[in-house]
């Protein structure tokens, strides 16, 4: 029996239960062996993958299915790199045709410098994909209205960013993240922007259902060690949220009793 002291439910997305609240990407690793080791160390059950052309000169061996067993991990194809509704639908369709599941991580980017999402296009794409039977997990900005519209569109999870993709800036707007979590019924997964373990912990302390990251682990000097740190940080942040933190106040309150002090003090 592990030393867990906080009773928690499993993360359930679209009727599917996950033992870990950490979802990880598979990009930017220095080697496939390192990627697999890091994902195992993270404890993540759901991992994201991208859809790209096979490099016909190099053969298909760099395909992720040669390294990740879909029986061990739930693979979530993304629409990363798409800037239009049409492109996102095309990539989602290709991902589904691989035959693993009906799930997609929807991304429709609106700006090259910040990679911030085009929320209007994301909402439209989400509606269309849900209509075609997809289970859509939608990457979006930390905008409450966009998040509500994505829930209305039928997304199984809404995934506001902590900060821009790959920035490592952590949660720039904790209030917006909390408000999105308070107002939505579907799971809220914070996707993008986490830089190190404390960011993951702070993210989970906002009360969200999970966190998705890639660069923070893959671009660490030691990805396997960072993956382990992230696993612990996500768990710590979740436990702290469930435990209910003390109220913060800008004045000291002694921890030891005043009563019983010696004479003359």
């Amino acid at each position: 029996m592990p030393a867990a002291t906080v009773a928690d439910r499993k993360l359930v997305i679209g009727g599917r239960a996950f033992g870990s609240r950490l979802i990880v990407g598979t990009g930017k690793y220095r080697s496939n062996a390192e990627m697999v080791a890091a994902i195992r160390a993270s404890g993540a059950e759901m991992v994201t993958v991208a859809v790209r052309r096979v490099d016909l000169d190099r053969g298909a061996e760099e395909g992720i299915l040669h390294h990740l067993d879909p029986a061990e991990f739930f693979l979530l194809p993304n629409t990363a790199g798409c800037y239009t509704v049409a492109d996102a639908l095309r990539y989602a369709g290709l991902g589904r045709a691989a035959g693993l599941s009906e799930w997609v991580k929807l991304e429709v980017i609106g700006d090259e410098r910040t990679l911030l999402p085009d929320t209007a296009a994301t909402i439209e794409a989400a509606r269309r994909l849900v209509g075609e039977g997809f289970s859509v997990m939608a990457y979006t900005s930390d905008d409450l209205i966009a998040a509500l519209r994505l829930e209305d569109a039928g997304c199984v999870a809404v995934m506001p960013l902590a900060s821009p993709i790959g920035s490592g800036l952590g949660v720039v707007n904790p209030y917006y993240i909390r408000e999105i979590k308070r107002r939505l019924s579907v799971p809220v997964i914070v996707d993008a922007g986490v830089g190190t373990a404390s960011d993951a912990c702070v993210t989970m302390e906002q009360g969200v259902d999970g966190v998705l990251m890639n660069t923070a682990i893959a671009s660490a000097a030691d990805p396997v060690a960072m993956a382990q740190a992230m696993r612990l940080a996500v768990q710590a942040g979740r436990d702290a949220y469930l435990a209910g933190r003390m109220e913060a106040r800008e004045i000291a309150v002694p921890s030891s009793p005043r009563a019983g002090m010696l004479d003359g003090v």
Partner: peptide, 8 residues
Amino acid sequence: VVHFVGGG
């Protein structure tokens, strides 16, 4: 001809 590759 496409396949899955590493991505976030």
